[in-house]
Design a protein around this nucleic acid. Structure first.
Lengths: 388, 388
DNA sequence: CTGAAAGCGCTAACAA
DNA sequence: TTGTTAGCGCTTTCAG
């Protein structure tokens, strides 16, 4: 087959189309469009730029130009096009646009669970921040399931998001690495290095957070401390750090954490309540309790309430995250603040930079800070059987 | 210009391309692909089906067939294609797929504010439910801003979501109608009819909810009732119904709501606390308080706590929504349950039905139900200055 | 069972 | 200032 015959082949269909419709050659493209569209269940009669172009008596390119504000278009045609577009209820097709432009101006945010106000807060901050920088964000929940997480990551990539912000919990490092390898920028936030090679991102000094809590409680005079910690396999590792910062500080203070005062949860309210109940119904109760997130702390306060214990008089409670609810608990929760605005700003800088090809430096770990409210106080004076 | 010259025009570039690359005519499509791709900032080297096809020694169509599982492909080529796809790290481009298939298998969910656990719960339910039915969902927050809401709706349409579930708050009826007009299915959930012509959806009998609360409090013996209600212009109207159900019932019981016992909030914790503070620092305090959502109720409990008032002894508090947190407040909140699972299931049935072209009937209003927990009790016996 | 080709809606380089 | 054309990556007839 010669090159010439190939050219003929390629052309034939067009010729036929032109002949069949008896049109002048110019609108060849036009007549062949919107033809043979497979009959859709839902009658979607979306207008295209071709429709607008036809109505305005110009070409699709012209319409594209006026719509994008690029190129130089006479005032007259601009107005006419705009008018037609409006009248036809034209709405651009972002799929097509993104396909040609090779970018979606969309980022993906992967979090464990939107029901946790900590993540909801992050999501809001990311969404708003990204929006002002011209990006839409699609929020994605792993529900702490690595299989799902992997799938969702693939899906985001398949949707060609321009970049991803990934929080730990339901996301394997391998999955992320795979994205990175295919050239998709991923920024890891609050991820925990454990000797592993975490891709660039912005982290927080969780260990220090645990230390702060221990110190605060110790300073108040507590000696019988307890902890509720989230240590699930698929979960994020940072809870381990909150834990070790806490225990090591106690250890150093000569007041090691007793094994029966360690309980486990899954970061949920329910688990916090259950764990606290278990902790508080032991023969000798702890006088203070550190839950490695605010939701579990809230559960703990609830457990105390149900046992008729007064917080902070009978039990001091400390959380971690400083979610929006914390100041409104009864009592307001003492907790560890994570500067979400800063976190998100840094992460977005990193991500948008990477999207533009810049290879920015990973910023230093953020420092958590104690927020002392009313759920902690000095322990009540000992009035056990031994005291007078 | 004749038809013939047009044909020549159309062909020339192809000829040139073929000549330049010196290829046999068949792979014209192939050689011209992935050429001249504008240099992108981020080096995205995504593989396409053409790459896979080339590697496997077949055509793109064949690759498409094996990947989609459609058509009949010999076991041999299937395996070879699959292998190549895997080795090349092929990831489908959903933009392109959606563009040709004229559907995205994605629905949009528009809510006011994800930080409100009520909406977070809805979002989770929708996401999971849709997922099992083969749809991804993109969550969108209006932040109660109608301008933003309108824009986001447009954006969802532009992304060609297959359908939208819209909750009130930051969404104008006009905006929705406009979507509907262009053929995009929209299901309105928890929307409030006010004589207006609400598009199909699933609603809840909010008024009845307000009545239930009033009855409950009345039955407990309360006579000095108060309310915190969200009545913002851009907000949803259902709070008005909760309000009128409440007041009318009180009225009927011969115990009308006093004007100074009506306070306003914006559905947030902060506003609930502030409004409650105002209510509770009046010379004569109410003995019960109904907040038209749980978040404001939580704020109210917080306000009471800060004023040294005991809930429910000094003040009964009732919320609305029954968010996941409610059972874990201190005390556990008495509230009105909205059956989210049912709500979402119905909405999704409606929406997916509409997407498939079926015109299903609007289901009857859901009925709210009282959930009595520990934040309500009989009022403490009167011990004001007048009593002995 | 596989290949060729058209088309989805839009953009952008180039030509006119 | 506007038009022509190729191409983004994929699906889907229609041929063979």
């Amino acid at each position: 087959m010669s090159i010439l015959s190939a050219a003929l082949f390629f052309t034939r269909a067009h010729l036929v189309a032109a002949l069949l419709t008896g049109c002048t050659p110019l609108p060849i493209l036009e007549v062949s469009l919107n033809r043979l569209r497979t009959v859709l269940p839902q009658e979607t009669n979306l207008t295209t730029i071709y429709d607008v172009a036809k109505a305005a008596g110009v070409t699709a390119a012209t319409v594209s130009y006026v719509l994008s504000g690029r190129g130089s278009i006479s005032q007259a045609t601009r107005e006419k096009v705009l008018k037609c577009a409006h009248e036809l209820g034209y709405r651009p097709n972002l799929l097509a646009r993104s396909l040609t432009k090779q970018q979606t101006r969309t980022i993906g945010l992967v979090i464990p669970h939107i029901i946790n106000p900590f993540y909801a807060g992050i999501a809001e901050t990311v969404e708003r921040n990204a929006y002002t920088r011209g990006f839409r964000t699609v929020i994605t929940n792993t529900y702490e399931d690595e299989r799902l997480g992997q799938e969702l990551l693939e899906d985001l990539a398949a949707r060609r998001v321009d970049g991803i912000i990934a929080l730990p919990g339901g996301l394997s490092l391998a999955a992320i690495q795979s994205m990175l390898k295919s050239g998709l920028p991923v920024i890891c936030c609050l991820w925990e290095e454990e000797g592993q090679n975490i891709p660039s991102g912005v982290g927080l000094d969780f260990k220090r957070g645990g230390q702060l809590v221990a110190r605060h409680l110790l300073e108040l005079g507590h000696r019988r401390l307890s902890i509720i910690v989230d240590t699930r396999p698929d979960g994020s590792l940072d809870h381990h750090l909150r834990f070790s910062g806490f225990t090591e500080t106690l250890q150093d203070a000569g007041c090691p954490l007793e094994p029966q005062f360690i309980a486990h949860g899954d970061s949920s309210l329910e688990s916090g309540e259950a764990a606290a109940h278990q902790l508080l119904t032991q023969p000798e109760r702890p006088t203070a309790l550190f839950a490695t997130n605010d939701l579990m702390a809230m559960g703990a306060i609830s457990a105390a309430w149900k046992l008729g214990l007064h917080v902070p008089h009978d039990l001091s409670v400390v959380g971690f995250d400083n979610i929006a609810l914390s100041p409104f608990m009864a009592p307001p929760l003492t907790t560890v603040n994570v500067d979400r605005d800063r976190l998100v700003t840094l992460a977005l800088n990193l991500l948008l930079g990477r999207i533009e090809g810049k290879q920015l430096e990973t910023p230093p770990l953020l420092l958590p800070e104690m927020v002392i409210r009313s759920s902690t106080a000095a322990p009540a004076p000992e009035r056990g059987p031994a005291s007078p």
